[in-house]
Nucleic acid binder design. Structure first.
Length: 439
RNA sequence: GGCGCGUUCGUCUAGUGGUUAGGACACAGCCCUCUCAAGGCUGGUGCACGGGUUCGACUCCCGUACGCGCUGCCA
C-alpha cells in the first residue's frame, strides 16, 4: 500500500495559498495518490520577517478545502520532522559541517557560500526532458546569511534529502535553480531525487499572476461560492488533460489517468470564465445532499432562519439548477422563508407598469381559491384556464404572479414555487402585493 | 546582458509527416420556454515568422521574433 514514492509540497507562509501553489500541491497529491506514495507538507519558514502564523493557517485551510490531504508533515506528524524549517537548525548545521569538511564552502563577509564545481550539470526532468546547463560562469551561491539564517537552496535540498523525497514536483520557476540543487546533493554525497517542473499559471494576458490579481487566492473562491471539487477540477486542467476532450472529471479518474509525462510544458493562463462555467456544471449535476451541505454556510451567514431539513431541501431543489455561485443561494431562496421579502424595484417597474397587471393578479387569486388539491399541475391548469377564458396569454399572468410571490422577476418554475409556498401563503402574498408595491 | 524553457482559435487544450486542424470556455444567431438558467443547433476566429529536411510539414532541424523563468545574503 505504501510505495517508495515520496513527494512534498513545501510552501513559504508569506500570505495566502496562491492558485499556483495550490496547483503544485494538487499535482504532487495526484502523483502520490496514483502511485500509493506519501505526500509530505513542509513549511519553508526560513525568512522570519516575512512569515506569519496566519499564513500557515491559510495553507492548511486552502489545502483542506480543496480536499488535498497530506500524509506526513506539519499538523500530520511523522518520523522525519520537524516539518517547519525554523525548527530544523541542528539538521542544517550537521550538513553544513559535511560541506565544511569537504572544503565545499567558504566564508564571505560573514555569510557562507557554496563553492560550485563549475562543471556542466544535466537535469533529467520528467516533464521538460534532459537539459544541460553550463555552470562555468555561475557565481557561488550563498547558503547562510551572516545572522545565521539559511538560504532556500540549501535547506530545501537538505530537507528533501532528510525527508527521503523521491520526486520533486514544483513550478518551472525552479528549473534554472535545479543545477545548483544537484551540485548540493552531490557535495553532500547524495543521489538527487527525480525532478518534474510543471508550467506556471499566468494571468489571462500572459503576465505573471501576483498576489494582488483577481482570483489569485484560494480563499477568494471560498468567499465567492465555488464548489471545491469544481476549482480542483479546473486546476487539474491547467497543464494537464485526459486527452479525450472531457473536461468535467471525477477526481478518482484524474488520479487514475494522471502522469507526469502527460504534463504540458507551456505556461497556462488562468481563465476565470471557464472556472466559473465548470462550477456551474458541478452545481447543476451534484446530488442535492452535497448542494445543501455546500450551501448551508452561505445561508447561515446571510441570516436566513431555516434549519436543515425537508423544507430547505425542497427550496434548494428548485433553485439548484439556476445557481452559479453558492454565495447567491441566499438570494435565490430568501423569499421562501421571510414574510417581508424585498420587492425588486426593477422587476416591479417592469411587470406592474400597467395597472391592469394588478387586476389580473386579483383574478388569479380568485381562481386559485377554487383549487382543491394544491399541486403544481393544478395550479398550472388553473392559470392556463384563466388565460384562455380571458383571451390572454399565459405570460400575462405568470409574470405578475412571480413578482407577487417572490418579489423578483427571475426564479424557478412558477408552478412549483407556488406549490411549495402553499395555497394560503400564496393568496396572502397576492393580496398584499398592491399595498406593498404602492409603498 | 547571460543562461534556460516555451510558442495550435481571445483562453484551456487534442494533434507526434499526409486531418475539411478536433473539443471546451467566451462571443453571435436560432430553437426550446412562465422568467432566468440549463439543453439543442448553427457561425466566425488558430498552427508566431523565415529558412531548411522531405514526394509531402502544425508535426523534424536551424535561425529570428515574442513571452516566461533564473541570474539575491527572496522562496
Amino acid at each position: 500500500m505504501s510505495s517508495d514514492i515520496r513527494v512534498r509540497f513545501a510552501p513559504s507562509p508569506t500570505g495566502f495559498l496562491h492558485v499556483g501553489g495550490a496547483r503544485t500541491a494538487l499535482f504532487n497529491w495526484l502523483y502520490a495518490r496514483k502511485h500509493g506514495g506519501t505526500l509530505v507538507l513542509r513549511i519553508e519558514d526560513t525568512d522570519k520577517n516575512r512569515n506569519t502564523t496566519e499564513a500557515v493557517g491559510a495553507i492548511y485551510e486552502g489545502l483542506r478545502w480543496l480536499g488535498l490531504n497530506w500524509d506526513e508533515g506539519a499538523e500530520a506528524g511523522g518520523d522525519l520532522g520537524p516539518y517547519f524549517q525554523s525548527e530544523r537548525n541542528a539538521i542544517y548545521e550537521k550538513h553544513l559541517a559535511v560541506l565544511e569538511e569537504k572544503g565545499a564552502v567558504y566564508e564571505d563577509d560573514g555569510s557562507i557560500r557554496f563553492r560550485s564545481p563549475r562543471k556542466p550539470v544535466v537535469v533529467n526532468d520528467l516533464v521538460c526532458g534532459s537539459i544541460e546547463f553550463d555552470r562555468s560562469g555561475e557565481p557561488d551561491m550563498t547558503i547562510r546569511r551572516p545572522d545565521g539564517s539559511w538560504i532556500f537552496h540549501f535547506v530545501n535540498v537538505v530537507d528533501d534529502l532528510e525527508m527521503k523525497i523521491s520526486h520533486v514536483i514544483r513550478g518551472e520557476d525552479h528549473l534554472s535553480n535545479t543545477p545548483k540543487h544537484i551540485e548540493l546533493y552531490e557535495a553532500l554525497g547524495a543521489r538527487p531525487p527525480s525532478f518534474a517542473h510543471i508550467p506556471l499559471i499566468l494571468n489571462r494576458d500572459g503576465s505573471k499572476m501576483s498576489k494582488r490579481d483577481e482570483g489569485a487566492s484560494i480563499a477568494s473562491y471560498v468567499e465567492q461560492g465555488y464548489a471545491p471539487e469544481a476549482v480542483r477540477n479546473y486546476l487539474c486542467l491547467l497543464g494537464w488533460s485526459p486527452k479525450d476532450n472531457r473536461e468535467k472529471l471525477d477526481i478518482d479518474e484524474v488520479i487514475q489517468l494522471f502522469d507526469l509525462d502527460k504534463v504540458n510544458r507551456r505556461n497556462a493562463a488562468f481563465d476565470i470564465d471557464k472556472c466559473f462555467w465548470l462550477n456551474g456544471q458541478y452545481l447543476l449535476q451534484m446530488p442535492i445532499e452535497r448542494f445543501e451541505e455546500l450551501s448551508l454556510p452561505y445561508i447561515q451567514k446571510a441570516g436566513i432562519a431555516v434549519e436543515s431539513g425537508d423544507r430547505l431541501r425542497g427550496a434548494l431543489t428548485m433553485v439548484k439548477e439556476k445557481v452559479k455561485h453558492l454565495s447567491d443561494v441566499p438570494d435565490w431562496i430568501r423569499y421562501f422563508f421571510e414574510e417581508d421579502y424585498a420587492f425588486d424595484p426593477d422587476s416591479v417597474a417592469k411587470v406592474f407598469a400597467e395597472p391592469v397587471a394588478l387586476e389580473r393578479l386579483a383574478q388569479l387569486a380568485e381562481k386559485f381559491e377554487t383549487i382543491e388539491a394544491w399541486t403544481s399541475e393544478n395550479i398550472e391548469q388553473a392559470l392556463k384556464q384563466l388565460a384562455t377564458d380571458n383571451g390572454l396569454k399565459v405570460k400575462d399572468y405568470v409574470h405578475a404572479a412571480r413578482v407577487a410571490a417572490s418579489g423578483r422577476s427571475v426564479g424557478p418554475s412558477l408552478y412549483h414555487m407556488l406549490e411549495y409556498l402553499g395555497k394560503d401563503e400564496v393568496l396572502k402574498r397576492f393580496r398584499a402585493t398592491p399595498a406593498r408595491i404602492a409603498a
